[in-house]
């Protein structure tokens, strides 16, 4: 893409949660208000109005576990797909590069919800695989494309001299990549991968339309039985909020550690 030298620094807006840093006082304070506020409201509702809130809190934890399984499985698989895609995107081989680029372009142009339906039912026509695995694959295929760009950027952020030094010692490109470039690139991509993890955690709620009993689906099940829609979705929203805020904090700490270790 041509760069306009006079333009300002591009604004970067990730699809994950905002990562709170100590330096950003406003966001840091907002994080505290949101996180502890959400916990406070949850406790208040659960114990102050146990009917129906305590019941809801008792009903949904199974779903939290499923949400975590889907998210973790998908992020691991997406990281592998992303690494392969990222390497493909920087490959000098035009065929490999073309396939990787096509994958990224196609996936980024289709809404995640449509992809989930598509992969779920497309896979279902040929092989019988468990619903959860199907959901994980669908999420991973989608996020793999985004992660591919993360890895591509991470690899390209390593100075050219590193590859040259490795090559000049007689290493092959593959050896140089494995021994010198990727170990450094992993450090660079760790925070963005954390960010993708949070985004994935939220998007995993989409699999509730499949027969996967994640957090949101558990909520739907409860609500459709009791008709207390407002109360149920309040609880669901609170739990998602507490989870994403918790992880964004964790990633913020990890980033600071990484920067301090430089």
């Amino acid at each position: 893409m041509p760069k306009n030298p006079t333009s300002h620094t591009p604004i970067e807006v990730g699809d994950g949660a905002a990562i709170p840093h100590k330096s950003d006082a406003g966001l840091f304070t907002a994080w505290r208000i949101a996180f502890f506020g959400a916990i406070f409201v949850s406790l208040y509702l659960a114990f102050g109005k146990p009917e129906p809130y305590f019941e809801i809190f008792k009903f949904v934890p199974d779903g939290i576990l499923v949400t975590f399984k889907v998210t973790l499985g998908a992020i691991l698989l997406a990281t592998v797909i992303g690494l392969i895609t990222g390497l493909g995107r920087i490959s000098a081989n035009r065929f490999v590069n073309g396939v990787a680029s096509l994958y990224v372009e196609v996936i980024r142009g289709i809404p995640l919800l449509v992809q989930i339906f598509y992969i779920y039912y497309a896979l279902g026509r040929f092989v019988k695989i468990p619903d959860m695995l199907s959901a994980i694959i669908a999420m991973a295929v989608c996020y793999g494309a985004y992660m591919g760009e993360v890895f591509r950027a991470g690899i390209q952020s390593i100075p050219k001299g590193q590859m040259e030094a490795a090559l000049s010692l007689g290493m092959s490109r593959g050896q140089a990549m494995r021994q010198v470039i990727l170990p450094q690139a992993f450090r660079v991509v760790l925070p963005p991968i954390g960010n993708e993890f949070i985004a994935l955690l939220k998007d995993s709620s989409l699999v509730s339309i499949l027969a996967v009993s994640d957090l949101l689906r558990r909520g739907r099940e409860y609500a459709s039985e009791t008709f207390s829609y407002f109360e149920t979705y309040t609880v669901i929203a609170l739990i998602y909020l507490i989870m994403t805020l918790f992880f964004s904090k964790l990633i913020g700490i990890m980033e600071e550690r990484l920067n301090a270790g430089k």
Binding site: P159, G161, Q162, E164, A165, A166, V180, Q184
Partner: peptide, 8 residues
Amino acid sequence: FQSFNLFP
């Protein structure tokens, strides 16, 4: 190299 290029 001019810029050393040690593996950090």
